[in-house]
Amino acid sequence: MVLLRRVIGDALRARRQGQHRTLREVSTAANMSLGYLSEIERGQKEASSELLAAICDALGAQLSEVLREVADTMALAEQMQGVLVPVQDDAKSPAEEHSIRKVHAEGDVSVSVRQDTPLKATLRATRTPRPGDRGRDVIYAA
């Protein structure tokens, strides 16, 4: 299961990094502490709607745009049933452990999953750029 706060945090971090901005720059513009913004980006804290709006404003993004991106990622993750379950086969070689297990694409979003260890998988969501937009890779580890 992918946590909503992780997906939101990763979407915000991808936007900030895509603009080559630091946590300090964005936290100052959003009028919030650097540490709290960092926790939101890492999915450790859930931001209120007011804080999300302030962060989006600081990033020059529409809140609805960020939430739409998050919703697309969540929808794809939900469709990939059984992807993030532990692997029972201990006989796998190290090369096989790090292989991509499943790829799903829908519209301008594609998701791939790599099994890092028997209990850890990495979910990578990639959005194809729209006119005037940059593509983004967002990574989720579970």
Rank of each mutant, 00 (worst) to 15 (best):
S49A: 06
A58W: 08
A91V: 11
A142M: 10
T73L: 05
V66R: 03
A91I: 10
M1T: 09
V7W: 05
K45E: 04
L12Y: 04
A30F: 10
E97P: 14
R136G: 01
V103D: 00
A53E: 03
V138D: 00
S64P: 12
A53F: 08
D90I: 15
A71S: 13
I40C: 05
Q81E: 10
G135Y: 03
V113N: 02
Q17L: 12
E39D: 12
A53L: 07
T73K: 01
S38H: 13
E78Y: 09
R114H: 05
G107Y: 11
R21Y: 09
D116K: 15
P131A: 06
R124Y: 07
L52V: 08
A121Q: 06
D108E: 08
G60C: 10
I139K: 14
M32R: 06
E25K: 08
A54S: 04
M74E: 02
A75P: 07
R134M: 00
G43V: 07
A142C: 12
S93P: 12
V26Q: 03
L12R: 06
Y140M: 10
G35C: 05
R130T: 00
R5T: 05
I139P: 10
P94K: 14
G18F: 07
M74D: 01
G9R: 03
E78N: 06
M1S: 11
E78C: 07
R136T: 00
P94F: 15
L59Q: 09
L76H: 06
G107T: 04
V83T: 09
A54R: 09
Y140L: 14
A125S: 09
V85A: 13
Y36P: 10
Q44W: 08
S49I: 03
M80P: 04
A61V: 10
H104W: 10
D116Y: 15
A30Y: 07
Y140W: 12
I55C: 08
T73I: 06
D57N: 11
V85C: 12
E69K: 08
I55K: 07
S48V: 01
P94G: 14
P129R: 12
Q79V: 03
G35K: 11
V85F: 13
A141T: 13
R16V: 02
D10R: 11
D90Q: 15
I40Q: 02
G135S: 08
G9D: 01
A77Y: 02
G60E: 02
R13M: 00
V109W: 09
M74A: 09
G82P: 02
